[in-house]
């Protein structure tokens, strides 16, 4: 993140001594800011008021991240209903700064289409969110389809499967309407190249060690005169699942 010109800091209601022990235990070098009394957490309006006052846990925030522009404007924020599901730094770099890493990717080709599918990192902890980028190149003269599409065609899609992926959301840019005079139809198509973006959440139940993220790219290609059979191309991306980082008392 710092190499990318981005500052990083974390705020919690912990005392400095607690943060010092946590930073030492996990080799954290970025600032862990101590907001004892939760004045800054209150100022941001994110104090968790569900924790009763007088309880030692009163003062914690709803956990989340802000991606800030250099002038302090919120570009994006990630507050998730389940505090155990957190975005990764690499996922944020991909989603909010369009920085595609090259650590975990697979290239596939079928017929006249080549695709590179990348995860934002080659390692993740259970319940972490990773960014997904897919770059598709289509040979000249051919096109593939977007949405919405009549039933007899297959739209371009990328779907992850398997136990390691708990949630997924992948979006492609809007396709360009193309008129097929001979058919009397106008259909949304992609020509040349396109990029899809999204994210996956690693399952909270996946065991630490080597694992694979599996999925399928679906598309159908046509040119001016013929349509080929719809393609389903399976792929696998190797990934390392890390152990969860516990708090000091766990």
């Amino acid at each position: 993140m710092q190499r990318a010109g981005l500052g990083v800091a974390a705020v919690s209601y912990d005392a400095k001594a607690t943060l010092k022990r946590f930073a030492d235990a996990h080799q954290i070098t970025y600032p862990l800011l101590s907001d004892e009394g939760s004045a800054v957490i209150r100022k941001f309006g994110i104090l968790n008021t569900n924790i009763p006052e007088g309880n030692m846990f009163h003062g914690i925030p709803f956990p989340g991240d802000y991606v800030l522009a250099a002038d302090g404007t919120v570009k994006q924020k990630h507050f998730l209903p389940n505090y155990q599901t957190r975005p990764t730094a690499s996922g944020i770099l991909l989603a909010d700064f369009n920085m595609v890493g090259d650590q975990a990717s697979v290239s596939i080709s079928a017929e006249d289409v080549q695709a590179k599918i990348s995860l934002s990192s080659a390692q993740a902890a259970p319940s972490q969110e990773l960014g997904v980028a897919v770059e598709i190149a289509i040979a000249p003269g051919w096109h593939i389809y977007g949405q919405p599409l009549p039933e007899n065609y297959v739209a371009t899609s990328l779907t992850f499967s398997g136990d390691a992926v708990a949630q997924q959301s992948i979006a492609f840019p809007p396709a360009v309407p193309l008129e097929f005079k001979a058919l009397g139809e106008t259909l949304p198509v992609y020509e040349g190249s396109l990029q899809g973006r999204g994210s996956i959440v690693i399952s909270g139940r996946v065991k630490p060690g080597t694992s694979k993220i599996a999925g399928t790219l679906r598309f159908q290609e046509c040119n001016d005169s013929i349509c080929k059979l719809p393609q389903e191309v399976p792929f696998e991306i190797p990934i390392k699942i890390e152990a969860m980082v516990p708090g000091l008392k766990n």
Partner: peptide, 25 residues
């Protein structure tokens, strides 16, 4: 024990500011 304002923390392209529950539990 180093004191930081938002300005001190800011990178040339911005920053990621994370709020966590606690490092202690």
């Amino acid at each position: 024990g180093r004191r930081f304002t938002l300005h001190d923390l800011m990178g040339s392209k911005g920053m990621l500011l994370v709020f966590t529950r606690s490092a202690d539990w």
